[in-house]
Amino acid sequence: MNYLTGKDMVEMGKIFVDGQDIGNHTIRQIRDKKVSHIPEDRMVDGAASSASIAENMISTKIDSQYLNKGLLMNRTAINQMAEKLIEYYRIKCDGSQQLVGMLSGGNIQKVVAARELASKPRLIIANQPARGVDVSAAEFIHDKLLELRGEGSATLLVSADLNEVLGLSDSLIVMYDGEIAAYFKDSSKVSELELGMYMLGSKKMNKEEIGGLMDE
């Protein structure tokens, strides 16, 4: 995950996004390629709890022409954007200036999702997006991911929640012990039991079956 999102530099092998090797790109450069990331630990990586909702929402967009007026930031544009996102994502709060730390877990995740998904990214890396989140917020986020998939974004969903994974994914990769253990092009054809066996390492696909993944 760290390699994909730019936290660590790749030493061996290559990672391609849109045909470009991003192995040693900085996080900034990766984001500039329209890659978004919903992190696993929202309180550590995904949000600044002592900053306002509005400030949290612009953290990845500070260079945007739309949000800046010359040397100064365009407060009205920022607050407008924040308010629209709050309404659209149905975030329960006391306005865009409220500190993120005061929100519930589900609402904080919605703030993160709003920031990451609103820019219509080409690749979304979603790491346990519904963990610790109430049911309605989780559903909301899942719907948004599907919506974006419909509009052409690619999503890499990382999760330990089988329901989430089976419900959302078109295709599945199972990892065990740091290696790819299985690849299913069509997730609707896999049973939970089979998945479980791969997850526990009792079964492992050979190179040919996984080869299908490389062609995709």
Partner: peptide, 14 residues
């Protein structure tokens, strides 16, 4: 933002 949460700042590309 870096002062408030440097990991968040890093993650956001700052």
């Amino acid at each position: 933002i870096t002062g408030q949460n440097s990991k968040f700042a890093e993650y956001s590309g700052i």
